[in-house]
Computed example of a mutant assay.
Amino acid sequence: MPSSPYSSARQVRLAIAERLREIMRDAGYNGRSLAEAADWHESKSSRLLHAKTLPSNEDLRTWCQVCGALDQVDDLISMSRTAESMYVEWKRLHRTGLKQLQESKVPLYETTRLHRVYCSQLVPGFLQTPEYAWALLKMFGNFHNAPDDLEAAVAARIARNALLRRPGYRFKFLLEEQVLRHQIGDPSVMRAQLDHLLAVAKLPSTSIGIIPVTTPRRLWALEAFNIFDDNLIQVELLTATVNVTQPSEIALYIKGFADMAAMAVVGAPAKRLIHAAKQDFL
C-alpha cells in the first residue's frame, strides 16, 4: 500500500514546489531575495518551496511576475488545482451542509459499475439504516461544526442507496469484524443495523465480506477507502477525503483490497459473526 494515504496529492505539491524553485533559480533569485522582491515575509517563500503550503493563484502570478516567467502561470495554476482536488478538507466539503455533501457524490456513484468499499471502523454509507446514518452524521456534523441539516442529509444518504437494487451495478464490501461492535447510536440502533446487513447481503448485486479478528493478518487494518471501477480511489481521513488518481497507487489499493478479501469470510460464516455481534446489543 502507499506509504501515505495522500501521497498522490503530495507528489503534485512537490512538483509545483520544484517548478517554483527552477523558475526562481533561472531568474537568479534565492528564497530570501524573491521574498523581498514580492514584498513577502521570507517564511512564505520557504513554505512554498518546501511544499508546506499550496500556493494560491495570486501567489503563483506574483512568483512568475517577479521572475519574468508569466508564460508559466497557467500551467502552475492547473497543477495547483489538481493538487487541491486530490486532498479536500471536510470543512470545505460540508460548507453548504451535509445534505449537499451526500448529493454531491451521486454522479460518481451512478457512473461506477463496480464499487468496492473497505471499512475498518464504521458500516459503509450504502449499508446504513436511517437510524444509524442519523447517529453517525450527527456525530460527524457536531465534530466538524457543519450546518445543521441532519434530517435532509439522512434522507439524501438513504435515497442514494437505491443503487444497490438498480440493475447493472455491483458492490463488494469488506468490513473488519470490529465494525459490527462499534456502537453508533443506542443498542436498538445497532440491532436494527446488523439485521439490515443480513438483509442486504441477500441482494444479487451485493457481496459483504467480514474479516474476523482472529484471522492471521496478510495486511494491517487501514483507513476506509472506496474504489470506483479501476479509475479512482477515495480515502477517508479524520480531516479530509483524499482522491487518488495515480495508476500505480490505484493498483496498490486494488491489490490491498484483494488481500483483504482473501482474509474475509462471506455467506454463512459472515452471518454467524453478525448474529454473534447482535447478541452484544441485547
Rank of each mutant, 00 (worst) to 15 (best):
E131T: 11
L232Y: 09
M260P: 03
D259G: 07
L194T: 00
I158R: 00
Q279T: 14
L70H: 08
T245W: 12
G256V: 05
F126W: 13
L93A: 10
Y87H: 12
V179Y: 00
K202H: 10
I250K: 02
E177V: 05
P216D: 08
C64K: 01
G185M: 03
D59M: 06
L163F: 08
P216A: 04
R113I: 14
L252A: 12
A277S: 04
F143P: 08
R272S: 11
H196M: 05
Q11L: 15
F228D: 04
V123K: 01
I211A: 00
C64W: 04
K91F: 15
L197Y: 00
A135M: 02
L164T: 02
K44E: 09
A153V: 05
S56V: 03
E36F: 11
L98Q: 02
Q65F: 10
M260D: 10
A159N: 13
D75W: 05
R217D: 12
V189M: 02
D186F: 11
A146M: 05
R32V: 12
V106P: 02
P5D: 12
I23Q: 00
R61C: 11
R166F: 15
G209C: 06
K138P: 07
E236I: 02
S56M: 08
Q183F: 05
F126V: 08
D71H: 07
G97M: 01
V189E: 00
G68Q: 04
S56P: 07
H50E: 13
L282E: 15
Y29L: 10
N161F: 11
Q246R: 14
H275I: 13
W40H: 07
G97T: 00
V266F: 15
A15Y: 08
D75G: 09
G168K: 01
P107V: 08
E249Q: 14
D148V: 08
A240I: 09
A156W: 03
A27M: 06
T239F: 12
G168C: 03
F140K: 01
Y253W: 09
S33T: 14
I158D: 01
A135H: 01
K255S: 14
I250F: 06
V117N: 11
A156G: 03
A156C: 04
D74F: 08
A264R: 01
M260A: 12
L137I: 09
L232M: 11
G256R: 06
A224K: 13
E249F: 15
V123W: 00
L136S: 10
E151W: 07
S56I: 05
A38K: 04
L150R: 01
Q183N: 09
Q121E: 15
G31W: 05
R191H: 07
A38H: 07
M260N: 11
K99A: 03
L219K: 09
E58T: 11
V189L: 02
R95L: 13
L282A: 15
D74T: 13
V244T: 10
V123A: 02
R32A: 12
V106L: 12
T112A: 08
A15E: 11
D230F: 10
H41R: 10
P167C: 05
S45Y: 05
P55R: 00
R95W: 13
A162W: 14
M263H: 07
R170Q: 04
R272G: 09
V66C: 07
D280T: 14
P187H: 02
P167Y: 05
M190H: 03
